[in-house]
């Protein structure tokens, strides 16, 4: 694998082909803030908090460092005034959903974000996808997924799978940047099958394919 040199915050950093900017920075001991990044998972680029200024081929761009591949001769800035402002607003927006998340409070302090700037919509979820991706990619259980879209998008456990798999796993809980409460809450809610649904399943047992799951 070929190695090349790029510049991050004025430091010469050697990176291998296929590395993202976050990974390259890590080898040089430069910390780029991340929320949706996880070493075991495919880069996702959901939270955008890792946004950096990258100059390559004479073009200066704002890119998400966790998904953007490091390039030869690239000049990356991870701590500029412009970036601080972007991150501040991002944190403020996420705090509308999860105002007391420890990681967000830390970032808020660092970038001077006002947790009450936007109207509260306490879903506790910032849709980083860590739980969903961990379950799909690492555990391969597919017990949790996204439901709906746009502003109504949320994570949801699949009751049939979660009922079997989740009680002894729960490995996604500590991953959640907005505290494990969210995951626990949704799990409990999903597992409590509404009575009418249970009755419906029981009513048709025998003549359809659901027989196995409702016994």
């Amino acid at each position: 694998m070929s190695e090349f040199v790029l510049q991050i915050d004025g430091k010469e950093v050697t990176a291998r082909e296929g590395m993202t900017i976050v990974e390259a920075a890590k080898t040089a001991g430069i910390r780029i803030p991340t929320l949706c990044h996880h070493d075991q998972l495919e880069p996702y680029g959901a939270c955008r908090i890792c946004t950096v200024e990258a100059e390559a081929n004479g073009r200066n761009q704002l890119v998400a460092a966790c998904v953007y591949p490091a390039e030869k001769g690239m000049v990356v800035q991870t701590k500029t005034e412009k970036l601080a402002k972007i991150r501040k607003v991002l944190v403020e927006q996420m705090m509308a959903h999860a105002p007391d998340a420890p990681q967000l409070l830390e970032l808020a302090e660092e970038y001077g974000a006002d947790r009450d700037r936007f109207d509260k919509d306490p879903s506790f979820c910032i849709l980083c996808g860590l739980c969903v991706r961990y379950c799909n990619e690492v555990k391969k259980k597919n017990a949790i997924g996204y439901i709906d879209r746009g502003p109504r998008r949320e994570i949801s456990f699949i009751p049939d799978v979660a009922g079997k798999e989740c009680w002894d796993c729960k490995e996604c809980f500590p991953l959640c940047p907005t505290s494990a409460l969210q995951a626990a809450y949704v799990l409990t809610e999903a597992l409590a099958t509404p009575p009418e649904e249970a009755a419906q399943e029981a009513g048709c047992a025998g003549s359809c394919s659901c027989s196995g799951s409702c016994g």
Partner: peptide
């Protein structure tokens, strides 16, 4: 359930698509 079984597609992907 049948589609998930026959296509070997996880239910969470089907739920994602059908609600999207």
């Amino acid at each position: 359930d049948r589609v998930a079984e026959k296509l070997d597609v996880p239910m969470n992907r089907i739920q994602h698509i059908t609600t999207f």
